[in-house]
Measured scan of single mutants.
Amino acid sequence: AVSDRLIGRKGVVMEAISPQNSGLVKVDGETWRATSGTVLDVGEEVSVKAIEGVKLVVEKLE
């Protein structure tokens, strides 16, 4: 699937994400809805860990 190529890629949070609410991330110039187990603020760099349906699962870049 086209989304599989995104796993491991870096992105930037465009709309804040929390465990309760999905947000938006931009990866390779495309905007995706994303979820995370932690709070991520706009502008934070993330990496794509998995894909669930049409949402990316991301975590903060260390």
Rank of each mutant, 00 (worst) to 15 (best):
1 A>D: 15
1 A>I: 11
2 V>C: 08
2 V>Y: 03
2 V>E: 15
2 V>S: 10
3 S>V: 11
3 S>C: 06
3 S>F: 06
3 S>M: 10
3 S>P: 08
3 S>G: 10
4 D>V: 13
4 D>Q: 11
4 D>L: 09
5 R>Y: 15
6 L>I: 06
6 L>K: 03
7 I>Y: 04
7 I>C: 04
8 G>N: 06
8 G>Y: 03
10 K>T: 08
10 K>C: 06
11 G>R: 00
11 G>Q: 00
11 G>P: 01
12 V>D: 05
12 V>C: 06
12 V>R: 12
12 V>W: 15
12 V>G: 02
13 V>E: 00
13 V>A: 03
13 V>Y: 00
15 E>W: 14
15 E>A: 15
15 E>L: 15
15 E>D: 07
17 I>E: 02
17 I>D: 01
18 S>G: 09
19 P>C: 06
20 Q>M: 11
20 Q>I: 14
20 Q>S: 12
20 Q>F: 15
21 N>L: 14
21 N>S: 12
21 N>E: 10
22 S>W: 15
22 S>K: 05
22 S>C: 07
22 S>A: 12
22 S>E: 13
22 S>R: 04
23 G>I: 02
23 G>R: 01
24 L>R: 08
24 L>G: 04
25 V>T: 03
25 V>S: 01
25 V>N: 01
25 V>G: 00
26 K>P: 00
26 K>C: 09
27 V>P: 00
27 V>W: 02
27 V>T: 03
28 D>E: 14
28 D>P: 01
29 G>Q: 10
29 G>P: 04
29 G>E: 06
29 G>M: 11
30 E>M: 09
30 E>C: 07
30 E>F: 10
31 T>K: 09
31 T>D: 11
32 W>I: 03
32 W>S: 02
33 R>T: 10
33 R>W: 12
33 R>K: 12
34 A>D: 00
34 A>I: 01
35 T>K: 10
35 T>Y: 12
36 S>C: 06
36 S>K: 01
36 S>F: 02
37 G>W: 15
37 G>A: 12
38 T>C: 05
38 T>G: 14
38 T>E: 11
38 T>S: 12
38 T>P: 02
39 V>S: 12
41 D>Y: 15
41 D>M: 15
42 V>S: 06
42 V>L: 10
42 V>N: 05
43 G>K: 12
43 G>R: 11
44 E>V: 12
44 E>L: 11
44 E>H: 08
44 E>C: 06
44 E>T: 15
45 E>K: 10
45 E>M: 13
45 E>G: 10
45 E>P: 10
45 E>A: 12
46 V>I: 14
47 S>G: 08
47 S>M: 13
48 V>Q: 00
48 V>I: 10
49 K>D: 03
50 A>S: 08
50 A>M: 07
50 A>W: 08
50 A>L: 05
50 A>D: 07
50 A>K: 09
50 A>G: 13
51 I>K: 04
51 I>H: 05
51 I>F: 08
51 I>Q: 05
52 E>P: 02
52 E>G: 04
52 E>Y: 14
52 E>H: 11
52 E>C: 08
52 E>K: 07
53 G>M: 04
53 G>E: 05
53 G>V: 04
53 G>Y: 04
53 G>I: 04
53 G>R: 04
54 V>M: 09
54 V>R: 05
54 V>T: 14
54 V>K: 07
56 L>W: 02
56 L>T: 02
56 L>R: 00
57 V>R: 13
57 V>K: 06
57 V>M: 07
58 V>T: 02
59 E>N: 07
59 E>H: 10
60 K>T: 05
61 L>K: 06
61 L>Y: 13
61 L>G: 06
61 L>A: 11
62 E>L: 14
62 E>V: 13
62 E>C: 08
